[in-house]
Design a protein around this nucleic acid. Structure first.
Lengths: 337, 337
DNA sequence: TTGTATGCGTTATCAA
DNA sequence: TTGATAACGCATACAA
């Protein structure tokens, strides 16, 4: 009681809770973070005081003092894209179980955008960072490495991740799709792809493999807007206008594939006899289109939890068996191909 | 230089940047927050020092000192639901333009979940909060009011918001849908609705209005899982099994409506002659189904920016003309009804 | 089991 | 135009 440090402002702090409970601020802190270190009696008094005052912990102050923000920054290309939003949903759930909040931000598909978003996000001092993909600008990598913050890259595969990586090989998925199509007897192909780099890699691998297998040409359509039902329809229409008659259509997403199905039907083309369709993503509508859609499945829930687990291990500095986890994929055969 | 407070740890701070530039820490702070108050020369030296050191501002410390976190907490029922994710995308974009980050969290559809999520989020000391809907637990409202943080409730309408509200009337939208259906000559109806409270309110208003208008019965199906193409199909199948022969089908989402269309087609029912379909949400695929889907449109991009603008006004304590903004809706007539 | 002292990296308030 | 100083609310180390 020597100095008058009585600055009761309106806000409830550990200090004021402690005053009410007749203990010091530190004891309140302990009561919340490690109750076993506080006697039962004072614990109760503190709980009562918290109840009475409606105290809400201040993580901002806590983060500054402890240098742990309990915040994860997650960068994904698009929030509205179901593939990413479903992944992130599971990622968030696991992280929440560990006491972390996830600040999600959209990067579009350009490295510049990603770089500028990351730059402002780093000022939040996240304990971990999730990046989509393995291709980032040099400055981006420098910032990441320089920050010393654990990073997990997802939705792709590399031998040399920034830190850790959980995903699958897009090239391999394109290859396997081509092999599948060839084995099913299709000798003519059309590939419709969104313009993002990973989709293009799948498409290129598909085309190359398909050509090698049958020495047949593959017609390619590359979109410049985000995939949609509309663009699936228009792409098939365009291909047919340009002479595509029959064969298998490889799409970079199920939404496109559904559009192709619809367009084929309006033109009275039989599926899969005239036009066979293969999607990507195996969204939950794929089994219920008519005909049902053959699609490449990636377990996004599993990916989310694996990515979260890997990142948590790095944050807790626990040993990690592998810093690259390939979760693979699987072609789900249905009626469209 | 009296006391040796030389504790250069590894981290770059305003202190170390200042030391390099030959100025005090405060000057660095000013250079970043209000450059006009710093001379051109020192500004350049500071910029150079920042470049050299790779300094990244620490918003955690800034937030603690200024009591402004530049963080918004946004609570939505589901991240993967396109209606919410598209809204939040625009909300985030506008907020980002104002220098704010948006921490998005999922609440499911229960008030308890929302309450517990909100409780932990409040410890981040957000400058503003976005809540979905107008129904919250008493404790939730108490926490919100007690925090003194500006709140915007979206996607619904009320005369007595917690703070501000931007949305539309679900009851009215159900009414209008019924009037539309009746005017189009449909005298028999089926309503398929997800179980969330707002969808149910739309459905109830639809049923009540439709009955009043024609004195005809409305068959109702209420789902217990999130809406999907599959459930749209199954619901129509179930209704037909139970005797529903023809009429208009009001769906609580476009996804359900699309499922209804597909199921009707597999049964060789004509649309809209045998079965007419009205969706909700006017997702961008609605114009490209076959037949194209009549749907109730809500401008989610506009909603996002209006909500952000309203919240910003409250944060900046600028006057707000109205604390309730009804953005309305519109029935987009296409071929399915 | 509890308390004291100190620092986390900023912003805000003065003073020069 | 600049700088010294004091918060901001908590966690950590150390002492009792």
């Amino acid at each position: 009681m020597s100095q008058n440090k009585e600055h009761h402002s309106g806000t409830v702090t550990m200090e004021s809770v402690g005053r009410l409970a007749g203990v010091s601020q530190v004891t309140v802190s302990r009561a919340l973070n490690d109750p076993s270190k506080v006697s039962a009696k004072t614990l109760q008094r503190i709980k009562d005081a918290i109840e009475l005052t409606g105290y809400v912990p201040n993580m901002v102050a806590g983060a500054l003092a402890s240098k742990r923000s309990h915040l994860i920054v997650a960068l994904i290309p698009s929030i509205t894209n179901f593939a990413y939003s479903e992944f992130i949903k599971h990622f968030i759930q696991v992280m929440r179980g560990h006491g972390y909040h996830v600040l999600t931000a959209e990067t579009g598909l350009s490295m510049e955008e990603e770089e500028s978003v990351l730059a402002t996000m780093l000022s939040r001092r996240p304990d971990g960072i999730m990046m989509t993909g393995i291709n980032h600008s040099a400055k981006c990598k420098r910032m990441l490495l320089g920050s010393g913050i654990p990073v997990v890259e997802i939705w792709d595969m590399t031998e040399s991740p920034i830190d850790t990586c959980v995903g699958f090989s897009h090239a391999k998925s394109g290859e396997e799709t081509a092999k599948f199509a060839h084995k099913k007897g299709y000798r003519n192909a059309l590939a419709i792809s969104a313009a993002d780099e990973r989709a293009l890699r799948r498409k290129d691998a598909f085309c190359e493999t398909f050509r090698k297998l049958g020495n047949n040409p593959v017609k390619e359509i590359c979109l410049d807007s985000p995939a949609s039902l509309e663009l699936g329809r228009k792409s098939l229409a365009q291909a047919i206008d340009e002479g595509f008659k029959n064969g298998v259509v490889m799409c970079s997403s199920d939404l496109l594939a559904h559009g192709v199905i619809i367009e084929a039907q309006t033109r009275n083309l039989r599926i899969p006899e005239d036009i066979a369709v293969i999607g990507f993503g195996n969204q939950n509508f794929a089994a219920f289109t008519v005909p049902s859609l053959t699609s490449l499945h990636v377990d996004r829930a599993y990916l989310g939890s694996q990515a979260a687990t890997a990142l948590m291990a790095r944050i807790d500095k626990k040993p990690l068996q592998k810093n690259c986890i390939d979760i693979g994929f699987e072609i789900v055969e249905r009626d469209s191909a």
